[in-house]
Design a protein around this nucleic acid. Sequence first.
RNA 1: GUGUCUAUGGUGUAACGGUUAACACAGCGGUUUGUGGUACCGCUAAUGAGGGUUCGAUUCCCUCUAGACACCCCA
Length: 441
Amino acid sequence: MPKVKKASKSVIKLVKGMKDILPNEQAYWDLIRNKVNAAAKDYGFQYIDTPIVEATALFKRAVGEETDAVSKEMYSFVDQGGEKLSLRPENTAGVVRAYIEHGMLNLPQPVKLFYFAPQFRHDKPQAGRYRQFWQFGFEVIGENDPIVDAQMISLSYFILQELGLNVEIQVNSIGDDSCRPKYIKTLTNYYKDNKKDLCLDCQKRLLKNPLRLLDCKVKKCQDLAKDAPQTVDHLCDECNKHFTAVLEYLDELDVKYNLNSKIVRGLDYYTKTAWEIVETSEEGKLNALGGGGRYDDLVYLMGGRQTPAIGFACGVERVINKMKDVKASLPENWRPDVYVATLGPEARKKALHLLLELRKEKVSVSEDLAKTGLKGQLESADKKGARYALILGQKEIVDGTVLIRDMENGVQEVVDIKKAVKEVQKRLEHHLIAKVLKKSK
RNA sequence: GUGUCUAUGGUGUAACGGUUAACACAGCGGUUUGUGGUACCGCUAAUGAGGGUUCGAUUCCCUCUAGACACCCCA
C-alpha cells in the first residue's frame, strides 16, 4: 500500500446556501425530471435553456426594481468588461427575453416553453430554501383565453400529484393595470384607520407592499384582514369575466382548488390569475411548492409587442423535501445485470475483453478488477445488486470456460467462454419474462 | 436583517468535571488469491476555533465560526 497522506486541517467548504446533490439523492431528481419531461411532451411544451447570467437591467425591468428578489437578493456583479450582470433569480424574464429576441412571435401562437434550471437568490437559507435552487417552470406566451389559465393550473397540479404529493391550488385574481391600483388604494384606506392596531411589520407593509397585509400571521392583523376589501370584489369587468371563466373551467377539471384572496405574487409582472400550489398533508404549514400567474404586460414591458402570457414554476428542493416527508415511492435503483469477478492475472486480462464484449452487447456490467479476493468481489456484486456473476479463474482460463453464478440462489454453471455473453443474455431474457408474467398476474 | 436552538470519527449516537473519549453502521484489510447476501479478527477515523473558570473541561462560562429552524420574503 502506498503511504497515505493525512488530511490537511484546512478544508474549503460548501458556500453558504449551496447544496451538493449527492448520488443517493439523484433518484428524486431523476423522477422529477422524468415526470416534468413527460408532462411537457403530453401538453406540447418545448424545452428551453436560457443563460444563468443576464443583464441586471433585465431583472430590474421585468421582475421589478422594488421586489425583494431583485433589490435585496440578487447576485449582481460587474464583469471584466464593465457590464452589469446578475445571476437569474427566476427564469421567466429570460424566457420572455428569448421570445422577443428570437422573434418567436412569428411562430404559431401560443409558444409553449418549459425549463428545469438553477436559480439564484441571496436569501438566508432555511428548510427547502437555498441560494442556488432549482425550478421547473412552464410558460405559455401569446394566448389570453382563460381556458389556458385553467389548463396551466391543472398542469401544475397534475405534475405534483404525479410525484405522489397531496396538493391543493390556492387561486386568486390580482387584477390588472386598470383595477389593481384602485384596489390598492381602497385597501390602504381601509388600513389607514386601523394603523395603530397593526404589527410593526404590517405598518411597513402598508407603505411598501399593501397586498402583503392580507397574509400576516399576527392575530390582530389577521382579524383586520378578515374584513379587508378583497381583490376579487374590486376587479374591473374584464378581469372579473376572465376570472369567472377560469374558475368555471377549473370546475370541469379534476383539480382541488381554493379561492384565496391572500394569494399575492412576489414579482411585479403578474396580472389577473395568480395561484400557488401547496401541500396539504401537514396542517398549518402551507409552504408553497410552486406558484404561477398571468403576466399579460411583461412582453410589452420588455420591449416586445403587447402579448398575453401565463406561467408557473415549482421549487424542486421543496418538492423533494415534501416527497421525503410523505415517503413518496421512488423507482427501483439501477442494478447491473452481470458482475465479472476474476482470480489471477491471466483472468484479469481475459476479463478486460469479456467486459468490452458485454458492454458492446448492451449488457449492463459491473466489476472491481482491482480487487483480488473472490470473496470481496462477490460481496461487491451483492451490494451492487447484480443478477449474475461471471467468475473467471485460472482453472477456467485453462479450460476456456467461465462460471455463471445466479446471485439469487447461488446456482452455478460452467459454460464455454465464447458463449458466455449469449448465455447471459438468455438468462436475462428469462428473468425479464418471469418478471412480466409476475406483474400480469 | 431579527430571533431560537445546535456543534464528538464518513454517518447515527454515548461519556456524575477525573484513566488510553465509548458503541453501532459504513469504509479498508485479513481469516492458506476459489464463492456474497448470513461468521470471526484487525485497521482507519472525532470533541469546530479561540479565550476563561478549575489541580483537571467533551462536560461549566464568554467570544467567534459554522449549521439547523423560524420571522421577513419567497419557490
